[in-house]
Nucleic acid binder design. Structure first.
Lengths: 159, 159
DNA sequence: GTGGCAGTACTCGGATAACCTTTGTCCGAGTCTAAACGG
DNA sequence: CCGTTTAGACTCGGACAAAGGTTATCCGAGTACTGCCAC
């Protein structure tokens, strides 16, 4: 059980976009150089954020990615859901009904499996915490120098 | 990001053991028949619970698995950690230090990565919920018929 | 009849393969820029 | 000098492979039961 790197990559890229605060799209190549990541694969990951409505992409020369919403309206939950999908981490396969359970009366299965319910409770707590944190919160918690450094670097490497 | 089936299997097996409340070890074959699961692989999964100190195994004929502790002292967190490992779901690879970050002064990295910290907060909430639920809680929440059915079935198929 | 003994069946445990998800790469469609050209 | 055209470079987007992890299987070490045999 491990979260894919795409979440980390996507969050860092969104954070950069938020710090820059520019209207110009930033291409994948720029992000890839920034973090020494494989450009093509990073692009593939960012596409997931576009599909989820977190980023907007403009094709062609001078194209790239921009934030689709303001940083206060992008939560960690949004990014995680966009990259990892919206399925539950714990996926109940209802093995209670198999084998011996097949002979049990149907009314025993009216209420959902207790194990699945407990796992779901925990997962909801996780999701709630993720939804409570936005990009803006991350910006505020980070050292101010990080934001200014990002802007300086962007100005220097501008096309 | 998906939790392995071993967690579901392990929890159901532990629950059966708790319901039976017997001192006799229950072999893998019995569990496998109960839920129509591949016996050898289920055995491999239960071994993880033994290593974690949740179950005790007795080899040889008339062998099998027993609960190592009382149901009130076995939490969902214990089982998840035993099967899935104790590593964090979100694993920060510190890409902030790579590429452009390599030129930043060291003091910018004194406090941990904000993204990793936020993810960790969410994960701790998840773990806390898991640790708060024990096998005994699951037994109480389940319909009483499930427990009695398990005992009846065990008596019938006793060796 | 009783104690010992060998054979047998059964169980866990770890070493060994098949499948699937994740990671990584490549090329095509479309777009903007910029230079060249003609009026 | 200015507008048009045309070639070029750049970017996203999805189709195509490699790698690692999970799922599944098999065989060996060890244990308890059971029937047999000797006394």
């Amino acid at each position: 059980m491990r979260m894919s790197e795409g979440v980390e990559w996507g969050l860092h890229c969104c954070l950069i976009l938020a710090w820059l605060g520019t209207d110009e799209p930033v291409p994948t190549a720029q992000f890839a150089a920034w973090f020494e990541l494989p450009p093509a694969y990073l692009n593939k990951r960012l596409q997931a954020l576009v599909r989820a409505g977190i980023l907007t992409s403009t094709p062609g020369a001078r194209g790239g990615f921009r934030l689709a919403r303001r940083p206060e309206q992008i939560s960690l939950m949004d990014v995680v859901a966009a990259v990892e999908g919206r399925e539950d981490v714990f996926r109940c396969t209802e093995i209670r009904r198999r084998g011996e359970g097949a002979e049990a009366p149907e009314r025993e299965f009216l209420q959902p499996c207790g194990i699945a319910a407990a796992m779901r409770r925990a997962e909801l707590a996780w999701r709630k915490e993720l939804a409570a944190q936005t990009l803006a919160d991350l910006m505020e918690a980070a050292p101010p120098s990080a934001g200014s450094r990002a802007r300086r670097h962007y100005e220097r490497t501008r096309r």
